[in-house]
């Protein structure tokens, strides 16, 4: 049975912080549970997600209105497919500017679509300021911090990017060994396909590491979905009781 539609926007104002890895994991999480998923690669100069998962992800550009339609019209489409946006740092400002102009948050909510911003956290001023501005500007969106251990970690990071309200828990991406990174960074690459039919480079220890990594990430993504479900339930109960919200 297909679940409710969600839109995942994976972003950061910085390059090379693990956005595409998180977007890949979300796509594969959907695929592993037999649910439809559609992904969008918004890296203006260098393809990312669309090279890892060419059958799932489409490369789109926000340089013109046609590109905007190719993305945003799909995000609000009346279907049950999850949508994943791998938002390159150079496209971030344009994406959220268009989203504000066309009021994406209201439209997705009206159609019963939950929109999550999976925000890769780090302690730079740019990342902190962008996070604050986006949360102020889009209060209806759910912001889930992502701690990518390979990029930034520590108690200070958790203090600056606390768990959001509503039972959501930040996503923690554990650091992988260099050897495993070497394998999974080849394009195309599917975690699920590699687990089913390991490529020759995936030695038994690496296979074990990959398996543990994917299981952990899928468990965390299930928790995000559970929090979304609870959030939706609370909203419908509040609406049913004539709650002003």
């Amino acid at each position: 049975m297909a679940g409710p539609a969600h839109v995942f926007i994976v972003c950061s104002p910085r390059a090379r912080v693990g956005k595409t890895l998180v977007a890949r994991l979300i796509c594969e999480f959907y695929r592993a549970s037999g649910r439809p998923v559609e992904a969008f690669d918004l890296e203006p100069f260098e393809a990312g997600l669309s090279e890892f998962l060419p059958r799932l992800a489409t490369r789109v550009s926000l340089a013109n209105t046609r590109g905007e339609m190719a993305l945003f019209d799909r995000l609000v489409a009346d279907d049950e497919a999850g949508k994943v946006v791998d938002l390159g740092h150079l496209a971030l400002e344009k994406f959220f500017s268009v989203a504000a102009d066309i009021d994406l948050a209201t439209e997705t909510r009206r159609r019963g679509i939950s929109t999550l911003v999976m925000y890769i956290a780090d302690q730079t001023t740019t990342t902190l300021n962008t996070y604050r501005i986006l949360r102020e500007r889009f209060p209806a969106l759910v912001f889930v911090p992502v701690y990518n251990d390979a990029f930034a970690r520590g108690p200070e990071l958790r203090r600056l990017f606390p768990a959001p309200a509503g039972g959501f828990v930040p996503l923690v991406v554990p650091q992988l060994s260099t050897a495993l990174r070497g394998v999974i960074d080849r394009r195309p690459f599917s975690f699920e396909s590699a687990r089913r039919k390991p490529p020759p480079q995936l030695t038994p220890p690496l296979r074990e590491e990959l398996d543990a990594f994917v299981k952990r990430m899928f468990r965390e993504l299930r928790e995000v979905e559970l929090a979304l479900l609870m959030d939706r339930l609370k909203t419908s109960l509040a609406e049913g009781a004539g709650h002003p919200d």
């Binding site: 209105t65 905007e68 339609m69 945003f72 019209d73 609000v76 268009v98 102009d101 066309i102 009021d103 994406l104 439209e107």
Partner: peptide, 11 residues
């Protein structure tokens, strides 16, 4: 009609 175009007209 496109949601994007409707959004632009609304704005």
């Amino acid at each position: 009609y496109s949601f994007v175009l409707r959004g632009y007209v609304r704005h």
